[in-house]
């Protein structure tokens, strides 16, 4: 466990360091971009560079950034000078809300469809295929058109209230369900011919009990990892969903920062993604140990 934690922290450090140097070795940054559209004088730009420490040697900048990051200071945005930690913290509530809601939908749909497809339901298989093939910017557009325009049941955008959350979490959850369901379907298929299923059948147990207690219980175990991965992806920023449904969140902030080459913000989000991955994986490992008596040690 400690070894894993160490590796995970190493992963975060490495990801952040790679991004730090990659971002600085390449030409162009938000400050130079401001020259183009801001109309600042060269002297003003130089002053800002010095204020932000961009004139100093690379290694010194790195040391300063790393020291700051360790004490919880991720620097300030090149554009508006807001601290990166504040920028990210502001997005946490909408991001986590959407991620949890979508995960809830994904679990129900993924387990339902995956189980049905594994048992041979063609319709469920088609739904899973669709979830994996249709791009979310297409299903999202269709969903907005159908539910918000034609039927006028749900608002298409905004983070306010629970109703604004329904449509994005349904769409996002549907696509996440595809990944979960595909793995579950394969596991169910592989479990059906197992000896203990045959035994259960010979004992004359009802089919419902065989599916729920015998097949599904075993098949769900390996999906824990997929669910964990999908959960961490949902928290890493769902750029397109947030854009389609006009919601605030990490994804939109990342997209903005990427377009304007606001490095400190990009770096901060990279660290956030590493942190999420670390925590979720640790949680999944612990859950796995709880669920599977064979690996409990």
């Amino acid at each position: 466990m400690i070894k894993q934690l160490g590796a995970a922290v190493g992963v975060m450090w490495l990801a952040a360091t790679l991004v730090f140097f990659a971002l600085r070795l390449l030409p162009g940054d938000a400050i130079s971009a401001q020259i183009i559209d801001g109309g600042l004088s060269p002297a003003q730009i130089e002053a800002r560079r010095i204020a932000l420490g961009l004139d100093q040697p690379l290694l010194l900048q790195y040391g300063r950034w790393l020291g700051g990051a360790l004490s919880g200071d991720l620097g300030v945005s090149l554009l508006d000078g807001q601290p990166v930690t504040v920028i990210i913290a502001q997005q946490l509530t909408p991001t986590i809300t959407l991620a949890l809601a979508a995960l809830f939908v994904a679990l129900i749909m993924g387990i339902g469809l995956g189980c049905a497809a594994g048992l041979g339901a063609a319709l469920a298989q088609i739904a899973l295929d669709l979830a994996l093939s249709a791009p979310i910017y297409w299903t999202g557009t269709l969903a907005i058109w159908l539910f918000a325009v034609v039927l006028d049941w749900l608002p298409s955008s905004g983070a306010a209230g629970a109703t604004g959350l329904i449509l994005p979490s349904l769409v996002l959850g549907f696509h996440t369900a595809g990944s979960i369901g595909r793995v579950l379907a394969a596991n169910v298929q592989a479990t059906i011919p197992a000896d203990f299923v045959l035994t259960a059948r010979m004992k004359g147990l009802p089919e419902r009990v065989i599916v729920w207690r015998h097949i599904l219980r075993v098949s769900l175990l390996p999906t824990v990892n997929v669910i964990a991965l999908q959960a961490s992806f949902l928290l890493s920023g769902v750029v397109i969903t947030e854009m389609l449904f006009i919601r605030p969140g990490i994804g939109r902030v990342l997209l903005d920062a990427v377009i304007r080459q606001d490095y400190p913000v990009v770096q901060g989000i990279v660290l956030w993604i590493g942190l999420v991955y670390l925590l979720i994986n640790a949680a999944a490992d612990m859950l796995y140990r709880q669920l599977d008596p064979r690996v409990a040690a």
């Binding site: 590796a7 992963v11 975060m12 990801a15 890493s236 920023g237 750029v239 993604i273 991955y277």
Partner: peptide
């Protein structure tokens, strides 16, 4: 290194 990269959704 691989794990560091795999932490990111491919689109991100």
């Amino acid at each position: 290194m691989l794990n560091a990269v795999l932490a990111f959704p491919s689109l991100i």
